[in-house]
């Protein structure tokens, strides 16, 4: 077996411009922020971002002109307010946005993880989330068995998935503690996977409790040791979210000073 340890720099440069990238975690929690910052630093271009309920990771990449298209159910800062760069770019028509809801992201990833072209759901009927898709990714179908009206969700297959986990061994056996979000599905749906982890542990140790390993090594292409790699997001059992950091980001962006944020925290 081959060790897959990479530096943050190597991991970010292994993500091609114009590829589609699924980003794990959610809004304030366990997003792979150290790797996202490195992608901004390396000025990745033309990315298609895939996520579900997203905040700083998406907004920072969008504001830094790394993104041509985003696909998500939600981009915002929950109780702190709207996502300034996402909002600005969508209102000006500078990025493409594919409207989803949580269920379609999760179902599309699940389909890809299962090797299927689509999976049916019962959601979306009557919602304009269906309408704006024009049958591209969501389509009404009849159940072949019961005749019920269902919605088929096209499989979502990211070129690359990046997640942050609490623990991995050098080969990519990865343990996620606390809420899974949809990180497992993102990993299993993707063509290539990079895991950043708080700790890199001995493979014999992680294999003592294989039932706690969410992701087997062969699905992982790169492993990065990144302590505090989710900061300012929380990482369950390691640290809480730094809400003041998110407030500072929003304040700076609202003043049009994203560069100031980047100078302070990214470069």
């Amino acid at each position: 077996m081959k060790e897959k340890l990479l530096t943050l720099k190597e991991a970010a440069s292994s993500i091609d411009d114009h590829s589609s990238v699924a980003i794990g975690g959610m809004s304030f929690h366990r997003a792979p922020m150290a790797l996202v910052r490195e992608m901004v630093k390396q000025t990745r271009k033309g990315l298609t971002l895939i996520g579900r309920e997203e905040g700083l990771s998406f907004d920072l990449l969008i504001g830094s002109n790394c993104v041509k298209k985003a696909l998500a159910a939600y981009i915002g800062f929950e109780n702190l307010g709207l996502a300034p760069n996402f909002r600005k770019k969508v209102e000006k028509g500078e990025i493409k946005f594919e409207e989803h809801a949580c269920q379609s992201i999760v179902t599309g990833l699940r389909a890809s993880a299962m090797g299927l072209p689509f999976l049916p759901t019962r959601g979306f009927l009557g919602s304009d989330v269906m309408g704006v898709h024009n049958g591209r990714d969501l389509r009404v179908i009849d159940s072949p068995f019961t005749g019920e009206k269902l919605v088929a969700v096209r499989a979502i297959e990211p070129d690359v998935t990046i997640i942050h986990a609490q623990m991995s061994d050098p080969y990519g056996n990865t343990r996620i503690i606390g809420q899974m979000f949809e990180d497992d599905l993102m990993v299993k749906a993707a063509k290539k996977v990079i895991v950043t982890a708080e700790e890199i542990v001995d493979t014999d140790d992680i294999r003592k409790h294989p039932e706690m390993t969410a992701i087997p090594h062969f699905m992982v292409d790169g492993v990065v040791k990144a302590p505090k790699g989710a900061y300012p997001c929380s990482c369950y059992c390691y640290y809480d979210a730094d809400m003041d950091h998110f407030r500072e980001y929003l304040d700076l962006c609202r003043k049009g000073a994203l560069d100031g944020y980047i100078d302070k925290y990214v470069r």
Binding site: E53, A73, R87, E91, A101, C102, Q103, L125, G126
Partner: peptide, 16 residues
């Protein structure tokens, strides 16, 4: 749009 909100999140799913 005049104002772009965050989007559905799980709201559409919950409403359905």
């Amino acid at each position: 749009p005049e104002v772009r909100f965050p989007g559905s999140g799980g709201a559409c799913d919950m409403a359905c």
